[in-house]
Amino acid sequence: MAERQIMVISVMDRDRPGIVAEVTEGVSALGGNLADLRESVLCGWFTMILVASFPADVDAARVEQALAKSTSSRVSVVPAEGSMAETEASDQVYVLTAVGRDRVGLVARVSRFCFDRGVNILDLASHVDGDQYTMMLQIDLADAVSRGDFKAALTRFGDESGLKLVLQHNDIFRATNEI
């Protein structure tokens, strides 16, 4: 198979029916093959990121132009470097939950705390219930300070920030929730 170009495409628009159809039809018209896709709707706003491989003669500017015609949504296209191979998941993936009273800067504080300790955030979701804000982060401790040190730091951080922080291993989460 001839060498193909891998591109990352992001789409944003006020949510309405038909966005996914418009974008993916545009991609396939150019011979693009989807590798992965994730869409999400937050507070009425649609966002989607997708990764696709295109024939070698198709460049990012052409994809962006074609998609601008096939959809009225805001689209940006970036050529991806390297291969599309999935990175090997480490066995140090944990789920961190942080619950506290809703206020400005909570996500910033938690993510800064993680970054400062070499912890990579793999996935993040939040949930608001009344004035209570809940954050759920999937984090990788493979490159972090030791697990013990991270846990100790987490306890101190919880005390300082008033957040209730719970760390559980991703395997426990999966074992207790998957059938």
């Binding site: 789920v95 939950t97 979701a125 999937q138 719970v166 559980q168 989460f173 929730n177």
Partner: peptide
């Protein structure tokens, strides 16, 4: 993808 209701259940546990 992580689902919030499931996670909160295990956190409680």
């Amino acid at each position: 993808m992580i689902r919030s209701d499931q996670i909160l259940n295990t956190v409680d546990m």
